[in-house]
Measured scan of single mutants.
Amino acid sequence: MLEGKVKWFNSEKGFGFIEVEGQDDVFVHFSAIQGEGFKTLEEGQAVSFEIVEGNRGPQAANVTKEA
């Protein structure tokens, strides 16, 4: 699992990017966010995740919000 911070997330469109120190930003789709209820992320929020190869390159999977 990697750790990063949410760079930005558009809850209307359901996607955004996660910043990872020393690496390129990683695309995140709302469907990759773990948990119940409305799936969104806040700018600057700490998250842990895995990287998988998507249709358009690397993207986040199994995203969990850090306490």
Rank of each mutant, 00 (worst) to 15 (best):
G14C: 03
F30Y: 12
S11Y: 14
F9H: 01
I51A: 04
G57F: 05
F38M: 08
F27P: 03
V20Q: 08
V20K: 07
K5H: 09
G4D: 00
V63D: 01
I33F: 06
Q34K: 14
Q34R: 12
M1K: 14
F9A: 02
A67Y: 14
L2S: 09
Q23G: 11
H29S: 04
G54T: 12
K13H: 12
F49L: 07
T64V: 13
F9S: 02
L2A: 10
E3G: 13
V52M: 11
F30E: 04
L41I: 06
S48T: 12
N62Q: 09
E3I: 15
V6W: 02
V52H: 10
E50D: 11
Q23R: 12
E36P: 10
V52F: 10
P58K: 12
K39M: 08
N62L: 08
I51F: 06
G57C: 04
D24K: 12
I51D: 01
A61Q: 10
D24Y: 12
A32G: 11
E43Q: 14
E12H: 14
I51C: 05
G14T: 02
E3W: 15
L2P: 04
E50T: 12
K65D: 05
V26W: 03
E66H: 15
T64H: 13
F9Q: 01
A61Y: 11
H29Y: 06
E66I: 15
Q34A: 12
G44Y: 06
A67Q: 11
T40L: 08
G57E: 03
Q45T: 09
A60M: 01
E66Q: 15
K65H: 09
I18M: 03
T40K: 09
I33L: 09
K39P: 09
F30V: 08
T64M: 11
E66L: 15
F49A: 02
K13A: 09
G44T: 05
E53R: 11
S11Q: 13
N55K: 14
L41P: 02
F27K: 02
G16R: 00
T64A: 12
G37Y: 06
K7I: 07
S31K: 11
W8R: 04
A60L: 02
E36Q: 10
G54C: 04
N55Y: 15
I18F: 03
G22R: 07
N62R: 11
F27V: 02
I51R: 07
F17A: 04
F9P: 00
T40I: 10
F17Y: 08
V28D: 00
F49V: 03
V26Y: 05
V26G: 00
K39W: 06
V26P: 01
F49M: 05
E42C: 07
A61G: 08
G57W: 05
F30G: 03
E21C: 06
K5L: 05
L41C: 03
V63A: 03
Q59K: 08
D24A: 13
E66G: 15
I33H: 01
G44S: 06
G4T: 01
V6D: 00
W8S: 04
S48A: 12
I33M: 05
S11C: 06
E36L: 09
F9R: 01
S48D: 04
F27M: 03
G14P: 00
V63S: 01
Q34C: 05
A60D: 00
V6A: 03
E50Q: 06
G14M: 03
V63C: 04
N55G: 12
N10F: 07
G35W: 09
G37D: 11
F17G: 02
G54M: 09
P58Y: 10
G54K: 09
T40H: 12
T40P: 03
E43L: 15
E43Y: 14
F15L: 07
N62P: 02
E21S: 15
E42W: 13
F15E: 03
K5E: 04
V28F: 12
F38N: 08
S48M: 12
G35Q: 11
K5P: 02
K5A: 05
K5T: 07
K5M: 05
V20E: 02
Q45N: 08
G37N: 07
G44P: 02
I51E: 03
E50G: 09
E12R: 15
A32Q: 09
G37V: 06
E43H: 15
A61M: 13
K7A: 05
M1R: 14
F27G: 01
A60K: 01
A32P: 01
E3S: 15
K39D: 04
V20I: 13
F15N: 03
G22C: 05
G35I: 09
E36Y: 08
A32N: 11
I33E: 02
L2W: 13
G16M: 01
M1P: 14
Q45A: 11
S31Y: 06
T40Q: 09
G4M: 01
F15D: 01
E19S: 14
D25R: 05
V26E: 01
F17S: 03
V63G: 01
V47N: 00
E50S: 10
W8Y: 08
I33G: 02
A32H: 08
M1F: 11
K5W: 07
G44E: 04
D25Y: 06
G16V: 01
N62K: 14
E12S: 13
I33T: 02
A32E: 07
G4H: 02
G37C: 05
N55T: 13
E36R: 09
V63L: 10
E43P: 15
L41M: 07
V52Q: 10
E19R: 15
A60I: 02
E53Q: 14
E21D: 13
T40R: 11
G35Y: 08
F27S: 02
A60P: 01
V52D: 06
L2K: 14
E19I: 15
F15K: 02
Q59D: 02
Q34Y: 08
I51V: 13
D24F: 10
F27W: 07
S48Q: 15
G22F: 10
A60G: 05
E42Y: 13
G54F: 09
K65M: 12
G37I: 05
V26L: 09
K39L: 11
E21F: 11
E50A: 12
K65F: 12
Q59W: 09
V28T: 04
V6H: 00
G54D: 09
L41Y: 02
N10G: 04
E19P: 02
G54P: 03
K39A: 07
G22M: 07
A46F: 11
N62C: 04
K39I: 06
G22L: 06
F49G: 02
A61E: 08
K65R: 13
Q23A: 10
G54E: 07
F49S: 00
E36N: 11
D25G: 04
G44M: 06
Q34F: 11
K7P: 00
W8T: 03
Q59C: 04
E3D: 12
K65Y: 14
E42L: 12
G44L: 04
T64N: 12
A32M: 07
A60V: 03
E53N: 11
D24L: 12
I33K: 01
F30T: 04
G54L: 10
D25W: 07
K65E: 07
A46G: 09
F15I: 08
E53M: 15
G57P: 05
E53G: 10
S48P: 00
L41H: 01
E3Y: 15
V47C: 04
F17M: 07
D25V: 06
G57S: 06
S31W: 10
